[in-house]
Design a protein around this nucleic acid. Structure first.
Lengths: 128, 128
DNA sequence: GTTTGCCTTGACGTGCGCGTCAAGGTTTAG
DNA sequence: CTAAACCTTGACGCGCACGTCAAGGCAAAC
């Protein structure tokens, strides 16, 4: 299938697919006229990337999963590198949950009583 | 005090302060040589902005708080517009907490059993 | 033949909160 | 007098995952 059909079937855009290719996440055969030609396996790759993005992983984080699928594994997360990404992300999420809980309490307190003495900790707020 | 001292006392940079000014969040008197001159009240404003940023609010969100302080209120969050920002942010944080909980469970499940059948919901992942 | 709908590469734009030069003026210390 | 340490404006850079033209080629329908 060509790039337009792949985009439609994956529910994304041709621009995104070309971007994945530019990042080395997706490869394509070329027909004689230069058009990209994709297989069902490529669709599988794109879906993998999308589900990873859905849990907040970056395209960089998706590399090991793609490599794992390319290496012939049935699941992208059955390789050590992929599982390491999961572990790292889980730690990030836990840290984020903790901070957001603090933020939540701060906001509720401010809304309940307008007490100007409550000051939040100046920690970084990188929740992804 | 001049911009360097204000930056030092607020624990930020001169670049940030000039940026706040460009966004209309901070104003400064000018001395005869064109230098910015700040008061203790300006320091208070900067600290307010910083504490709002610490809970994930944008500079845009900080506007009502600054306006509230400028209007003479002792606390930046004692005005209706400010409290509305708090309420909106609280809702955002709650939504974020919910999604992150789902992400957490997904990651744990994937790490425990490598079951490729679990697929996350394609919802947006805008946790700020 | 020409319109339509695909496809190609390339380059710049987006949001947000600044960082990082660049090129210069001012004030103080030595 | 000179150097150091301030200050000024202006302009571009960053990260990230693309969106949005621009300018053109290819293939099939009318």
């Amino acid at each position: 299938m060509r790039i337009g059909e792949l985009a439609k079937r994956a529910g994304t855009t041709t621009r995104a697919l070309r971007f994945y290719e530019s990042q080395g996440l997706l490869e394509a055969q070329r027909t004689s006229n230069g058009y990209r030609e994709y297989s069902e396996h490529d669709l599988r790759l794109v879906r993998e990337i999308q589900s990873l993005q859905a849990v907040g992983l970056s395209l960089e984080d998706a590399r090991p999963f793609v490599a794992c699928l390319r290496a012939g594994h049935e699941s992208g997360d059955s390789c050590p590198d992929s599982r390491e990404v999961y572990r790292r992300k889980l730690a990030e999420v836990d840290a984020c949950l903790e901070r957001l809980q603090g933020v939540r309490e701060f906001l509720e307190a401010r809304l309940a009583f307008q007490d100007p003495c409550l000051v939040p900790e100046p920690k970084e707020f990188l929740c992804s």
